[in-house]
Write a protein that binds this DNA or RNA. Structure first.
Lengths: 223, 223
DNA sequence: ACCTTTATTATTGTATACAATACTTGAAAA
DNA sequence: TTTTCAAGTATTGTATACAATAATAAAGGT
């Protein structure tokens, strides 16, 4: 038992910088750490029970992810996201999600087709449950399957990075029951096109899906 | 005079981590640091005359840029780039460059149109000079103008990041005199379409331009 | 009362010290 | 001769110490 736990620790081993990175990242994405909030090293170090070194390294990583902004000799702060930033992200995401869908049509494996069907079903079930977190997870899962089916690692990484930035706004959209029927329909449409390998229709379906999300997010922002 | 120098130093101030980051980045891009080469902290620190701290932070940044790969408790090495990686990058780059061109058609300013004309001319002049570095710079400049004309910061950042990865292969392509005539022609075509605001034709021209580069790079890789 | 200047403090930037782990070399035994 | 074990070494991971700078507060002069 102790042996097993030790083994588990070995598998779970993460440098503290990565633990800190994940923690801060999560905090920023959930909004616990607000845009503009200063990230002071000693303060964070004390709170997380580590030294400044891993904190600093995590901040360097968050900086390159774009989640924090450095001000020289002043320190890091949670990046302020402007409406224009969101528009920029959505514009790129539309192109990349469309690409992912196109590639998925060509390259999806039989296993992934099954996985996609399952993901679509689970999304429907999730909407019934009504739990926002579950719904959001199911939606992410569905898109992840398509993304994975593109078999392009770089693309997967880039889309995930973009999705991260608009996570909170997407969540609002997905939570709203008024959108569920449409989401289910759009998922079904995309799924069928991808499984059939109909690139043209799949791209169009995916683009409609994204554009609908976009419009909602942009109107959220204009509040 | 001393005053002025002090002022300059203030402007030029960069944390050591950024100096190290740029140095290592340049080394990797030029091939001075070869793929698979280990990056040992003390060794680098001694060579660059700094302590391990800025070295480590620079490595964290390079890691997120994808230029180095971490092996837990083993350290960093220059990322090995597989043929598949290049294919993945090119696939995404095609989509993003096409998007950039499309957006440039809509948003390019009059100043940028002039700049684009100048960049195209300077590329022609550069090919006459025959200096590989000058040609490469002129080509980068041309594409940078179009990219800037997209007025999408995120897109600019992502394309630059992708371009970074294939820099060396692109250099080979651009250096080859046999390609110059075609490059000049393609640039002219793209430029005219963008200035006219003809999105459809501009995208097609840009895609042809990229595909030609792609084919060359991919055949380079298969050596 | 207000501005300026100076002292203090808080915070980042950098270097070093210590701890833990993985690799290497050499010797001893099979 | 080969294999295994162990000691030593090299290297990363983490913590702390020191230096430089910027923000703040207090004191003094006008």
């Amino acid at each position: 038992m102790g042996e097993l736990k030790l083994q588990m620790n070995m598998d779970e081993y993460l440098p503290l910088r990565d633990v800190v990175f994940n923690t801060l990242r999560q905090g920023i994405l959930t909004g616990e750490l607000e845009p503009g909030e200063r990230l002071m090293e000693i303060h964070l170090a004390d709170r997380l029970g580590v030294s400044r070194t891993p904190i600093r390294e995590a901040i360097r990583m968050l900086e390159l992810e774009g989640l924090v902004t450095m001000i020289p000799r002043k320190g890091a702060e949670v990046s302020r996201i402007s409406r224009q930033d969101i528009r920029d992200v959505l514009e790129v995401r539309l192109a990349l999600d469309s690409l992912a869908t196109k590639l998925a049509c060509k390259r999806i494996t039989d296993d992934q087709k099954e996985e996609l069907k399952r993901a679509a079903e689970e999304f429907v079930e999730a909407t019934v449950s009504g739990d926002a977190t579950v719904i959001a997870q199911a939606d992410v899962k569905f898109h992840d399957v398509i993304l994975a089916a593109s078999h392009n690692k770089r693309l997967i990484q880039m889309v995930n990075n973009l999705a991260e930035r608009i996570y909170r706004y997407r969540l609002e959209y997905i939570k709203d029951r008024a959108n569920h029927a449409r989401l289910i329909e759009e998922h079904a449409k995309i799924m069928n096109c991808v499984i059939k390998g109909d690139e043209g229709s799949a791209c169009i379906a995916a683009e409609i899906h994204i554009v609908n999300q976009e419009n909602n997010m942009l109107s959220q922002i204009e509040e």
